[in-house]
Design a protein around this nucleic acid. Structure first.
Length: 476
DNA sequence: TGGGGTTAT
DNA sequence: ATAACCC
C-alpha cells in the first residue's frame, strides 16, 4: 500500500476498477477508519494492534491431485504429470520413489519404472480448479491474492478481530492452536498477538477442511504476521498440515534458510548479483551496508530485500480478482517456416478465443511472443503487441462471426515484424497473449457513468488514446 | 526445464 | 518492450 499511502485508501490506485468476478462479491474494500502508521507508512486497520494475520494456503502437488480426482484409478499409484519431456510435478507416492519436480522423463522412468505419466500440457482443468479454490477462500474473507495456480494468501486480520469481539473471556483458557506451532514454541494466552494468531490457525484449519470437503483437495497452510513469514512457515510440515508462527520465533524461521536464494522475492538474477558481492546467507544480507547495497541493486530492490532478510514484509495482500491476461503457449524443438508458425498460432488463438469468450470481458491488446533457438544461451523472449481493432473487439463475444481470420492476419503481421522470414530462422516457442481486458460497458445512456466510461465502440473524438503509443502499428 | 502468471522500468 | 519476480 506504500504507493497509495498519500491517498489513504484501499485499494491502491489502478486496482479498484477491476471487475467483480467470478462472483458478484466486492473484490476490493476500504479498511474501516484506516490510518497511516508513522512507522511503516502503511494503511492499517484501527484496532488493538497494527500487526496483521496472514494465511498462506499451498495445495499439495496440485496438478497431480487434479489428475487423481479426474481419474480415481490413479490414486495410490506413483503418478507424474508430464509436459513435453519433463515431469513437472508428481504425487507423494512418486516422490517416495525418488521422482523430483521438473525431472527429465527419462531420469524419472529410470528411477521409478512403475511411474504412471499423464500429459499436463493443457492447463484448463488445473486453471478451473485453481479458481474454485480461490473462490472458496474468498468466501472466508474477500481479500485473496493468488500466487500461481496453487497458492493463495488471505488477509485474516479483520476476520480474527471480529471473532475476538464475539469471544467470552471465560473461553480464553480453553483456546487452542490448530495444527503445529513453529519451533514448538509455548503459547502464551496472556499475549494478544498469540491469541490472534491462534484464531488465525483455527480459520486456516476451517479453510483446509472446506477445501477437502467441497473440492476434495489437500494442502498446507501457514499463519503469520506477514506474507513472507506465512509463506515460509506453510512449508514446514508437508503435506497436508499447517503451522503457525509466533513472533518470538521469526528469527529462527528466517535463519533456517540455508541460502538467500530460498527467500521468496530474491530470484535468479538478484541471487547472482548478491553472490558477486559475497552475500550468500541471510546473515550476510542483514549485515551488508545498506548504502552499498543500494548502489549495487538500486534503492528499491535493495531496501526491499534487506527488509526481507529481517523477516519484514509490509506488502499488502492484493486481491487478485479476475486475470489481467490470458495466454497460451507451446514449445517445440524447431519451427523454421512461416506456414508452420501460422498453424501453431492458429491453434493457440482458437483456444484463447474460447477462454476469452467464457470470461465475458474483452481484450483490447494482443501480443505475440517468440523464443529463438540459441545454443547454450539463457532464456530470452521477444514480443510484439498491438491494439485489437474495435470492430474485431465487438465481434468477440458473438458466436458465428469469423474473428479467427482477421486475428491471424494481425498476428502474422506481428510475426513478420519480429522475424525476418526471408532469412533462415529457428524458433522454439510461440505464445499468444490477450491483455488489457475491459469490462463490457453496462452504463446507461444519459448517466454520468455513460459519459465517463471509456468508449468501447465509437471513434475517439479526443486526442487522447487510452493505449500506449509504443504498440506496433499494423497497417491494413 | 513447461505453461502459465504478476509488477516495475 | 523488456526484465525481473512467482508458481
Amino acid at each position: 500500500v506504500a504507493h497509495s499511502a498519500e491517498a489513504g485508501v484501499w485499494p491502491p490506485p489502478g486496482r479498484e476498477k477491476r471487475a467483480p468476478w467470478p462472483h458478484s462479491e466486492p473484490r476490493t474494500r476500504r479498511i474501516c477508519c484506516g490510518l497511516v502508521s508513522p512507522v511503516q507508512d502503511q494503511v492499517v486497520p484501527t484496532g488493538s494492534s497494527f500487526s496483521r494475520i496472514i494465511v498462506h494456503v499451498d495445495l499439495d502437488c496440485f496438478y497431480a491431485q487434479v489428475e487423481m480426482i479426474t481419474n480415481p484409478e490413479l490414486q495410490g499409484k506413483p503418478l507424474g504429470v508430464q509436459q513435453k519431456y519433463l515431469v513437472v510435478t508428481c504425487n507423494y507416492e512418486a516422490r517416495k520413489l525418488g521422482v523430483k519436480k521438473l525431472m527429465n522423463v527419462r531420469d524419472a522412468k529410470e528411477k521409478c519404472p512403475q511411474l504412471v505419466l499423464v500429459n499436463g500440457e493443457d492447463l484448463t482443468r488445473y486453471r478451473e480448479m485453481s479458481y474454485k479454490v480461490t473462490e472458496l477462500l474468498e468466501e472466508f474473507s474477500p481479500v485473496v491474492e493468488r500466487l500461481g495456480f496453487d497458492e493463495n494468501f488471505v488477509d485474516l486480520t479483520e476476520m480474527v478481530e471480529k471473532r475476538l469481539q464475539q469471544f467470552q473471556s471465560s473461553e480464553l483458557s480453553a483456546m487452542t492452536v490448530s495444527g503445529h506451532v513453529y519451533n514448538n514454541q509455548p503459547v502464551d494466552l496472556h499475549d494478544i498477538l498469540h491469541i490472534r494468531l491462534l484464531v488465525g490457525s483455527q480459520i486456516a484449519a476451517e479453510m483446509r477442511e472446506a477445501m477437502h470437503n467441497q473440492l476434495g483437495l489437500t494442502g498446507c497452510a501457514g499463519v503469520a504476521s506477514n506474507k513472507l513469514l506465512a509463506k515460509l512457515v506453510s512449508g514446514i510440515f508437508k503435506p497436508n498440515q499447517q503451522t503457525v508462527l509466533l513472533p518470538e520465533s521469526s528469527r529462527d524461521l528466517i535463519h533456517s534458510l540455508n541460502h538467500i536464494k530460498e527467500m521468496p522475492g530474491i530470484g535468479y538474477k538478484t541471487t547472482k548479483r548478491l553472490e558477486a558481492l559475497g552475500i550468500s546467507s541471510v546473515h550476510d544480507l542483514q549485515n551488508f551496508p545498506s548504502k552499498m547495497l543500494e548502489k549495487e541493486l538500486g534503492i528499491s530492490v535493495a531496501q526491499r530485500i534487506q527488509k526481507l532478510s529481517f523477516g519484514e514484509d509490509n506488502s499488502p495482500v492484493m486481491p487478485s480478482g479476475p486475470p489481467q491476461s490470458f495466454s497460451e503457449e507451446d514449445s517445440f524443438k524447431k519451427c523454421s517456416s512461416e506456414v508452420e508458425a501460422k498453424n501453431k498460432i492458429e491453434e493457440l488463438l482458437a483456444s484463447l478465443l474460447n477462454r476469452v469468450c467464457q470470461d465475458g470481458r474483452k481484450p483490447h491488446t494482443i501480443r505475440l511472443i517468440i523464443r529463438r533457438y540459441s545454443s547454450e544461451k539463457h532464456y530470452s523472449r521477444e514480443s510484439r503487441q498491438c491494439p485489437i481493432p474495435s470492430h474485431i473487439i465487438q465481434k468477440l463475444g458473438t458466436g458465428n462471426c469469423d474473428v479467427m481470420t482477421p486475428m491471424v492476419d494481425i498476428l502474422m503481421k506481428l510475426f513478420r515484424n519480429m522475424v525476418n522470414v526471408k532469412m533462415p530462422f529457428h524458433l522454439t516457442l510461440l505464445s499468444v497473449c490477450f491483455c488489457n481486458l475491459k469490462t463490457i460497458n453496462t452504463a446507461k445512456k444519459g448517466t454520468i457513468d455513460y459519459y465517463l466510461a471509456p468508449s468501447l465502440s465509437t471513434t475517439s473524438h479526443s486526442g487522447k488514446r487510452s493505449f500506449k503509443m509504443k504498440d506496433t502499428h499494423i497497417e491494413d
